[in-house]
Design a protein around this nucleic acid. Structure first.
Lengths: 145, 145
DNA sequence: GGCATATAATTAGCTTAGCTAAGCTATGTA
DNA sequence: TACATAGCTTAGCTAAGCTAATTATATGCC
């Protein structure tokens, strides 16, 4: 079921600008040693188990070469490993290491993280509103064109 | 009034990842000829009138050199002009040109814009939830540390 | 079997956009 | 007048996206 009325262009601009700014603020302080792209990819690998690198790129909505670099960093950090596909010599599967679980747990519970600090300043109502909107934002981010 | 309960770290991670991905998708298709940073700055200049460049950088939460480059692009595009401060030879005020109003109006009403297309696919409930969360996202993005 | 095509990942190099450090010029103060 | 401060610019770094071209493997057709 889609909307019959067009969304307000002013709202769209606000969303666009707000998302851009929030991203900027978040990217300025990357949690620990990982970059933004690395955390995003690592979360996906943890969630979707051993996954072909191409499929990981598709899920992250990123071109293949970008994922090569991101995965390279994660491998250097010992957070994922590449398992060669026994049935396809071109392909390989990316899997998290135990260290990755530990690190993601640490990141998630990191109370000092900037965003958590800010979220903690929200009123319960604001927080509830934000959490309610999360699935919508995720859908906007995941949808194909 | 702040929350008595800590925000859920899982929610924080989801927000972080979702904002990152949405930004990525949005940045891939910049509306028209303007880049993401340029639109964001232009919106602020339009809203806050002639504004000192340093203050613009502060509002955008960006370092001064970044704003020099962003404003440079906007000037080349004829969307803003620099008015030298008569009282302070070091400083200058950034003001939008009529072309900027026209362009922003165009951008805002651009129905073909990717985000609008996606937003149009939301249910009315989802859309309402998103719009309700907008001020909260904006607050998260604007807050100082 | 052998060659053409297709696919997975990588490499090389470009762009946008953030940053810090250092520099220039104007201001203000001792 | 001399020195410190403030506003903006320049130079050069990093992260992270992209496209185009390469490499290596699979697959499909004669």
């Amino acid at each position: 079921m889609t909307m019959t009325l067009q969304p307000d262009p002013q709202d769209i601009t606000r969303l666009r600008v707000a998302v851009g700014r929030l991203h900027r603020r978040l990217a300025q302080r990357t949690s620990g040693e990982l970059t933004f792209a690395q955390i995003s990819a690592l979360v996906t690998v943890e969630k979707h188990g051993p996954i072909r690198q191409g499929e990981l790129a598709a899920r992250e909505k990123v071109a293949a070469p970008s994922m090569t670099r991101t995965v390279g960093g994660l491998m250097e950090a010992g957070l994922v490993e590449k398992i060669p596909d026994p049935e396809d010599g071109r392909s390989c599967h990316i899997a998290v290491t135990p260290a990755a679980h530990a690190l993601l747990d640490k990141v998630r519970s990191e109370r000092a993280a900037m965003l958590s600090e800010r979220a903690a300043r929200l009123t319960p109502d604001q927080y509830a509103t934000l959490v309610a909107a999360l699935p919508v934002i995720e859908q906007l981010a995941e949808e194909d064109d």
